[in-house]
């Protein structure tokens, strides 16, 4: 059996965070119970190209009704790898986000900013055999939330990744360089200071597509696994 590296609590936010109010009733209050790594499942759902539609990687097109979505077009790309520096090919990424005005298409979003009839804000892509992914979207706007007076979320894109086993599962948020709201955001600030920079994408002129979209690079590191098959007999 193979062994998986644990969650690195120097990199991960705590369950209960003073600044982010909803954590006080929703984060577990007792210690997590250790599972002997030899007894933990070393498996998880694997997905193939069948879950990716032809426009799923292009949020500038997958919600069009009668025109182009409003806002600044961007292309987001990067590598998904594990802690050993190994690329993770064929890993499913799901993304969702607000539109350029900071409004989600979600029925429960009450923010008084316009919905864009041509923007859905949800998509999927898969890493290639080098562990690289790429999708097109509109730069999301900031939006207010009820955590504290005058609270605003920085621009962000929600990411959901699987990786090789259920233990490598990650849901996170990608932020943008130079956003002045980062310093006031308890969700971003919940992350240990030394690890926060890993959530901020990097602007790249190389990735930028001339005359079309600004480029951002966001690499994602999942927990390390070694894929050793279970024995063929018991």
């Amino acid at each position: 059996m193979s062994v998986l590296s644990g969650r690195d609590w120097k990199s991960q936010p705590p369950y209960i965070d003073q600044g982010y109010k909803s954590t006080s009733l929703r984060g577990p209050s007792r210690s997590l119970v250790k599972i002997d790594p030899e007894l933990a499942e070393m498996t998880g759902p694997a997905f193939g190209d069948e879950v990716i539609g032809s426009l799923d990687h292009d949020l500038t097109r997958n919600g069009r009704v009668n025109g182009e979505p409003l806002g600044e077009r961007i292309v987001v790309t990067g590598r998904v790898l594990d802690e050993n520096g190994q690329s993770l090919p064929n890993t499913l990424i799901e993304v969702w986000q607000a539109n350029a005005a900071g409004r989600y298409i979600h029925k429960k979003d009450q923010h008084d900013a316009p919905v864009d009839p041509n923007f859905l804000g949800a998509g999927r892509c898969m890493t290639d055999d080098q562990g690289r992914y790429r999708f097109y979207t509109i730069r999301p706007g900031a939006y207010p939330w009820g955590n504290h007076p005058n609270a605003w979320r920085p621009n962000h894109i929600h990411f959901s990744l699987f990786g090789p086993t259920i233990a490598t599962r990650l849901i996170t948020q990608m932020y943008f360089p130079g956003d002045p709201l980062l310093a006031f955001d308890p969700i971003f600030e919940s992350v240990p200071e030394a690890a926060r920079g890993r959530l901020i994408s990097e602007f790249s002129l190389d990735v930028t597509e001339e005359g079309f979209a600004l480029g951002y690079v966001f690499d994602i590191v999942l927990r390390g696994t070694q894929a050793t098959p279970m024995e063929g007999t018991e």
Binding site: D8, W96, G121, A122, I187, V191, A195, I220, V221
Partner: peptide
Amino acid sequence: SPRQTPSQTIGPFFHYGLNPVEA
């Protein structure tokens, strides 16, 4: 070696992205 990407909350507005059929 690279370090783990920190986790963040799924937030309140994931349904249209992750389980849209059900919602």
